[in-house]
């Protein structure tokens, strides 16, 4: 039951550390790497506040052992803004459209929405709601969350078009 050597890429940087295999990924991120963006909400894989991107998939980091994530590529909310600090279009859109009230669910919401828009860059409102169904907002600010994601999708599509 000794500690194991864990190596992974987090937000583009190689990180390593010693951890017990039973350490949950969320604890490793928050306590060992100091990445407190992903939150511990329900701790039972319902609420999605701990959502991170793992090897190109949205996962709940409260239901994954660090041992399972060994060698993986992880993106947290801290990894979404550009190097110069300018916000990701989703972060901008959540601010612009009041997509948060208390903000506790927001890192998980945005990290999930980030993957959703890669899976489906032009989602309908219904697809946004279904795609975000693993994330709960206890302030129940869902209308504006959907609005923000819709706006970010449009913004990102326009940006892509401009780049082409």
């Amino acid at each position: 039951m000794s500690k194991m050597h864990v190596k992974m890429t987090v937000n583009g940087s190689q990180v390593e550390g010693l951890a017990e295999p039973r350490t949950l990924l969320i604890h490793f991120l928050r306590e060992q790497l100091g990445l407190t963006g992903p939150h511990i909400g329900c701790d039972t894989s319902h609420c999605g506040a701990c959502t991170v991107d793992l090897d190109g998939k949205s996962v709940k980091s409260c239901t994954l052992f660090v041992a399972q994530a060994n060698g993986a590529e992880v993106t947290t909310i801290e990894g979404l803004a550009a190097a110069d600090g300018s916000l990701h279009p989703l972060q901008e859109a959540f601010r612009e459209h009041h997509g948060l009230q208390c903000g506790f669910c927001t890192p998980g919401m945005i990290t999930r929405a980030y993957r959703l828009l890669q899976e489906n860059p032009t989602p309908s409102d219904e697809e946004i709601r279904f795609g975000m169904s693993g994330n709960l907002c206890r302030c129940t600010g869902y209308q504006n969350i959907v609005k923000a994601i819709r706006a970010a999708a449009a913004e990102m599509a326009a940006g892509k078009e401009a780049a082409e």
Binding site: T51, S58, V59, K60, R112, F130, S133, G134
Partner: peptide
């Protein structure tokens, strides 16, 4: 079944 995050694993 479950939700998107859970279905991915």
């Amino acid at each position: 079944i479950a939700d998107p995050q859970i279905r991915s694993l």
